[in-house]
Nucleic acid binder design. Sequence first.
DNA 1: AAGCTCATCAACCGCAGCCGT
DNA 2: GACGGCTGCGGTTGATGAGCT
Length: 329
Amino acid sequence: MGRSTCCEKVGLKRGKWTAEEDEILVKYIQANGEGSWKSLPKNAGLLRCGKSCRLRWINYLRGDLKRGNITDEEDEMIVMLHKAFGNRWSTIASHLPGRTDNEIKNHWNSHLSRQSYRFLTSKHKAKTSIDVSTLVDQKKQRIGRVSRRVAKKYNKTRVLNNNKSPLSTTETSSPPLMVIEKQVDDCSNVVTKYSKENEADDDVISDDLESNWLMFLNDELFNIDYFLQDEGMDSSGVSRIHDEDLIEQWLAEIEAENINKTKGNVDEMNYESLSLESSKTMEYCHYETELDMEFGFTGFSMCDEEDHDMLVSLWEDDDPSLSGYVKVP
DNA sequence: AAGCTCATCAACCGCAGCCGT
DNA sequence: GACGGCTGCGGTTGATGAGCT
């Protein structure tokens, strides 16, 4: 049996693509069309695996890609779509023409996730209303996640000292080692918050992690757990909305904000995709499953007709009793 | 100026789902 | 239904350049 590895790299090139390789790939796809990625490299004369060719084409060489920085409007879309869909980057990308899932994923991980976390943390503390615009205005701030480098250093030290680890799973009732590492990585903005509150600099963050990490983890895991439970989030910090009152309030605030933006002489076309009718949206909404949530968000005009038809079809198949309930916008 | 740290992004990897046999 | 191949997706990594000390 055994799965065929598409990535058997015998004699195949890896790493950065050269201009010559790009040219060969573009010419081949222009002549023969996309698809058949497995056989494409051989037919085109490229020493790459099919996956690599596909990725290069989709993320970089495709003609319909939008170049340049992600705009504030796109930022807002990404934040909202991420709230609805979680880390389903291809779904999010499908609503942002010219942007790839990889691009959006990178953008989220490097820009928006920490903004979202900071925003939500402050919301948690102050119970302020949701203001999406505050998420996308906080740019280029070096504070935020603990870098992978610091995490690596931390983890390396952990591995070296593993036998002495006070959190060894055989010695305490704490969660298994890997779980703790994952949680800290996912919620590593908390590290910065911890540091700032204690007036420590960046160097002290890693020192804390390495020397006092047990106390630190207990403290932070308690905070994270409390925060995520209160916000209805999963362990990756993705909001899963189960409370209809909460989402109604959220939608109403976004709608009100968009009205204000329009009044403020903002280009209405830019915000057209963000407009929605809360009552209609709520009428569609059920929040039990991911499918329901997707359908619920068809109230957004960001969902095109084809998507809508598909979701209506899925909805009706899933529960025939609801077929008369569905309205086509 | 040099070395270090960090953010960014292109690319890779592994897995899951789909489809044909 | 089982199997195997292909494709697409999401998580992760590594290279690189910018900023900082």
